[in-house]
Amino acid sequence: MTDDADALFEHLELKEYETTALNHLLRLGQTTAPNLADATGIPRARIYTVLDDLANQGYIKLIPGRPKQYKAKPPAAILEQAQQNRQREYEQFCDELEAVQEAFLDRFEPLYEQASDDITPAEELFYVVDVGEPSERETRSLYREATDTVHVITKSFEYFEAVEPAVQDALDRGVSIYALFLHPENLSAENQAKQRTTREYIADAYPEIAIRFSTELLPWRGTLIDPSMDYETGRAIVLVEETDVPLHMRQAAVTENGSFVAGLHRYVELIWEHESVGSVE
């Protein structure tokens, strides 16, 4: 099989022999178990079990006869069956959770409430995640949850590709996005090039995103959503600038504290209004 074929079959979550057998049945058509074993290298002692498993999952059908033969279902039918299989698994999972829900809550809710009484103010203010995929995942969730505004404060928005689908979703829902970049004169040549590539792409693909450039150094970077001066709404993820700490060792703070997010927003507003420019050469 080619790498492309392997990637396509991965979505069916088949075992190795099942993948090999189904791939060959799709290519070769109807055949017997021994012939398929010879064509694929699957041991004859295993081939019938493999075919039975594929049939039980609904991906192939048995043709009665002497000898009996096996045939793959049409590709569209296989994908539809895979979806049905996954749906049944999910429904079964939900049933299993429902069966233990009462006992789980009775057992752990009192313990959780007792432990929560000992939470410090700092723990109530924020929690931390590693920089990289965990912080990007949190950022994507912010875009998806935003209902009004998203404010980004960044050096070069080098992670934009990782959050772009969530950005598009937010824009489609009418969310306003404001991106405050660090002015290129405060960046290294490498980061200048990264920023230029990203902001030119954003300006072309997403002209509705408002962009400005901070002429002052930025002590922190991050994303905040839906701030309000009544402190009732708002979430944010913040990374403090630590030039002496390698990026892979840094952590970002996530907060749902409305007053803290309002303070972050006020800082961004001041920079946006008084210490930023609308374009760079």
Results as ranks from 00 to 15, higher is better:
Ser116Thr: 07
Ile119Phe: 07
Leu142Met: 10
Glu124Lys: 14
Tyr159Cys: 01
Tyr143Trp: 09
His151Glu: 05
Val129Asp: 09
Glu158Ile: 02
Ser141Met: 11
Ser141His: 06
Val128Phe: 09
Ser141Gly: 02
Glu113Tyr: 07
Asp118Leu: 07
Asp130Val: 08
Ala122Arg: 04
Arg144Ala: 08
Lys155Pro: 00
Glu133Cys: 08
Ser156Lys: 06
Asp148Leu: 04
Val128Arg: 13
Ala146Glu: 03
Leu142Arg: 07
Asp148His: 11
Val152Gly: 03
Glu113Ala: 14
Glu124Asp: 05
Gln114Glu: 12
Ser116Arg: 13
Ser135Pro: 13
Thr154Pro: 02
Glu124Val: 03
Asp117Asn: 04
Thr147Glu: 15
Glu113Met: 12
Arg144Trp: 03
Gln114Ser: 10
Gln114Ile: 03
Lys155Val: 00
Thr147His: 10
Ile153Trp: 00
Phe126Ala: 12
Phe157Gln: 02
Val128Thr: 15
Phe157Gly: 02
Ser116His: 08
Gly132Ser: 11
Lys155Cys: 00
Tyr143Ala: 08
Ser141Phe: 03
Ala122Asn: 01
Thr154Glu: 00
Ala122Met: 04
Val131Tyr: 13
Ser116Met: 10
Glu124Tyr: 04
Ile119Met: 05
Tyr143Asn: 01
Ala122His: 00
Lys155Trp: 06
Thr120Gln: 04
Val129Gln: 13
Glu113Trp: 07
Thr149Gln: 09
Ala146Ser: 11
Ile153Tyr: 00
Val128Lys: 14
Thr139Glu: 12
Phe157Pro: 03
Tyr127Glu: 09
Glu136Val: 08
Gly132Phe: 14
Glu136Gln: 13
Asp130Ser: 15
Ala146Asn: 06
Ile153Val: 14
Thr154Gly: 02
Glu138Thr: 12
Asp117Ala: 09
Gln114Tyr: 07
Gln114Val: 04
Asp117Glu: 06
Asp130Leu: 14
Ile153Phe: 01
Glu133Thr: 15
Thr139Asp: 03
Gly132Leu: 11
Ser156Asp: 13
Ala146Pro: 01
Tyr143Cys: 05
Ser116Gln: 12
Asp118Ser: 05
Ala122Gly: 00
Ala115Cys: 01
Ser156Glu: 09
Pro121Gly: 03
Val131Phe: 12
Glu145Met: 05
His151Gln: 05
Glu133Trp: 11
Thr139Pro: 05
Glu133Leu: 15
Asp148Met: 03
Ser141Pro: 00
Ala146Arg: 06
Ser141Asn: 10
Arg137Gln: 15
Glu113Thr: 12
Thr139Leu: 06
Thr154Val: 13
Glu145Ile: 02
Gly132Ala: 12
Tyr127Cys: 10
Asp117Phe: 01
Glu158Lys: 10
Val152Arg: 03
Tyr143Phe: 15
Tyr127Val: 13
Ser141Glu: 11
